[in-house]
Design a protein around this nucleic acid. Sequence first.
DNA 1: GGGATATTGTTCGCACTCCGTACAAAAGGC
DNA 2: GCCTTTTGTACGGAGTGCGAACAATATCCC
Lengths: 408, 408
Amino acid sequence: MRKINTRDFQVATRGTSREINRRIALNLIREHQPISRADLARRMSVTRGVAGVLVQELIDLGLIYEGATGEAARGRKPTFLHVRSHDRLVLAADVRFSKTHLMLCDISGRQLALEVSDTVFDASRFVKDLAARVRRMLKTQGAQGNCEGFGLVVPGMVDHRTGRILNAPALGWRDVDVRDRLAAATGLPVQVENAGRACALAHLWLEHGGGHGAHDFVYINVSDGVGVGVVLNGELLRGRDHIAGEFAHMPLDLDGPRCLCGRQGCWEAHVSNLATLSRYFGWNLSKLSPKSLHEAERNAFTVPDLVARARAGDSKALDAVRATARFMGLGLATIINVLNPDSIYLAGEITAGWDLIEEPLRVGLVERVLTEAAARTPLRVSAAHEYPRLRGAAALIAAPTFAAPRVA
Amino acid sequence: MRKINTRDFQVATRGTSREINRRIALNLIREHQPISRADLARRMSVTRGVAGVLVQELIDLGLIYEGATGEAARGRKPTFLHVRSHDRLVLAADVRFSKTHLMLCDISGRQLALEVSDTVFDASRFVKDLAARVRRMLKTQGAQGNCEGFGLVVPGMVDHRTGRILNAPALGWRDVDVRDRLAAATGLPVQVENAGRACALAHLWLEHGGGHGAHDFVYINVSDGVGVGVVLNGELLRGRDHIAGEFAHMPLDLDGPRCLCGRQGCWEAHVSNLATLSRYFGWNLSKLSPKSLHEAERNAFTVPDLVARARAGDSKALDAVRATARFMGLGLATIINVLNPDSIYLAGEITAGWDLIEEPLRVGLVERVLTEAAARTPLRVSAAHEYPRLRGAAALIAAPTFAAPRVA
DNA sequence: GGGATATTGTTCGCACTCCGTACAAAAGGC
DNA sequence: GCCTTTTGTACGGAGTGCGAACAATATCCC
């Protein structure tokens, strides 16, 4: 029951019905390929005649192709339809404090090439350097003509509409226009998005197998910080000022530990990798400068190391990990109470020790969640693929092909 | 950019385009009445021919009617169109711990009759009693044939789809089917919803004047408890387990004051009327039973009284009110960081003292909100009409007439 | 082998849609 | 009285889904 926005609506024209049905057909083919015209007609509850026309149009548009003829118990054999993806390529980049990853993949997310380099912090040099790498990768992969766009993911606040990076503290960037500059330098359409949201996008658009078509979920990445992407009604929530989903800095305790953001008691300050390590080593976060913290974390050992020690019998390590888990549960409870999603996906180094943390996490969850039903919200560890952020960057380019047409 | 749900989609048929455009036309007429066919055509960017057909259909459906002919500087005078609402009536009820309100209004929310009675706590007697009142009111108002439905609003958790009240602690109801029983007893279609959400619905559907067509907002009612309704993309957020929007029990401080829900440090425990009064009187919430608290609040004086004292120069009263305001701001900050809505509407007794509380509220807000832009999220005190909850109940019945058709 | 049966995919008339144009109706200016 | 402007209607054209009939292709069974 959506209200029509009378200041921004879309009138239906002669072609609107066709456009809607074509898009539905494309999505059904994508999800059930290989599939025949007749099967498609049945799934759509339209006549085979209509399905045939829709399919022909999708073929003419180059979105699908006819494959082998399938087997049938009796009667004429069906010709299978597939979504064309092997020669529709996408570039994806993930910029982080330490390294910048660049990946070439097809529109379904299948990885074709990957390259890692040190991150360049000067914005102008960054653009120049990245554009050169893009050109080189396209050339060596023989993909110059087939690349449909370039998705970029950064840790920070992004205005997705204008492509400006508003604030990325980890990179030291404020109000930098990367999209247009990268587009000019590479000749490709460029999309920029925040890392947490991109992971959610990857899950929404590229995970039809395991993700099983979730349309209302929250994707949470607990790492150096806490990144969150919210998908409601099959759509990513961005918000008026591009900060929607910032659960990281909600307070658990107004007088709690100091957070890198300057405030006290943020959820992130309780559960980030740094918080977990601090708990183990007895660091006092309030007294360390942000920079030295970054160093400490980079050089010293990591959360996976800590999980390994916990596994090996180091009870102090186990306590630290489980303390973090409880706070994770407390924060998740608020997310559930507030958004009440169909499911929650968890990612980040600490999820490697899921068997160790699940129980204390659920204790924290039950402590604060409002109903028993809500406490049963499925929590899934995003085993997923290796590079959720890169896949998210790819999803930025892949999604428009399959998205629902704007109507009413 | 919405993903099509391949397990629950709507194929476009021959009539889909017309349905979409008819609904857009209806909404434009509603928002700009009186309006001519020609003007409608211009606003929709369609020819006058199409607009004429759409209008004729809406007239035939009884949704609009032709009114007087308007004035024009030159040329033929337009015939004005209006949404038919004076003889399309709706019943609305608001059940609270103390009283039950029953209102008859038209589909645009104009109040026609109002009746207040003591709340009946036995569910069976409640249904019987309320149905009798409904019949009587329809009779005395001569509205038996024109009533299109009955909207019911309760303080508690509701499954809107099945019409069951899952848990309403204030009324002592658990898993009670009111919808079907009321529908059988009154012969009307019945819709049930939670009070906080209903207020948001009222704002979305019945506030085209002042609300100015907000489509992404949060409506917050700070009263005995804290009720919140979230509207995103012109649609009310309900959630998997019907608890979406439950910001009331997010923690500000895990070791904070005890809340009526049994947990500690909930936002509600910091800002509810009870919390404000406790601050003034020095009550210790942890040591009072929920029941005695209810009594204390009902019999003693109220938050408006406290605001009056603050106005009169009672510095202790002012401190109590302003302390609550700061906590309100801290909670609002999390709401903004998380949902980042276009605007926030505030209601509840304490907003009567808006001039006293705005400053400390904004201090709390700025303390926790992540960006300066987000800190400027418009906060509007819902002066609104007298009965937001009743209007919300009415909106439950009124909305389907104007909602966007489901497509793709 | 050959006809019955079953399934796929196409074709064509039909009713419905929006779209553009032409036209009638109604008012004011000169 | 004629021109101009605006509103509202009428009609052919192009594009849509729908239903039924059709050709193509396969298996089953006698």
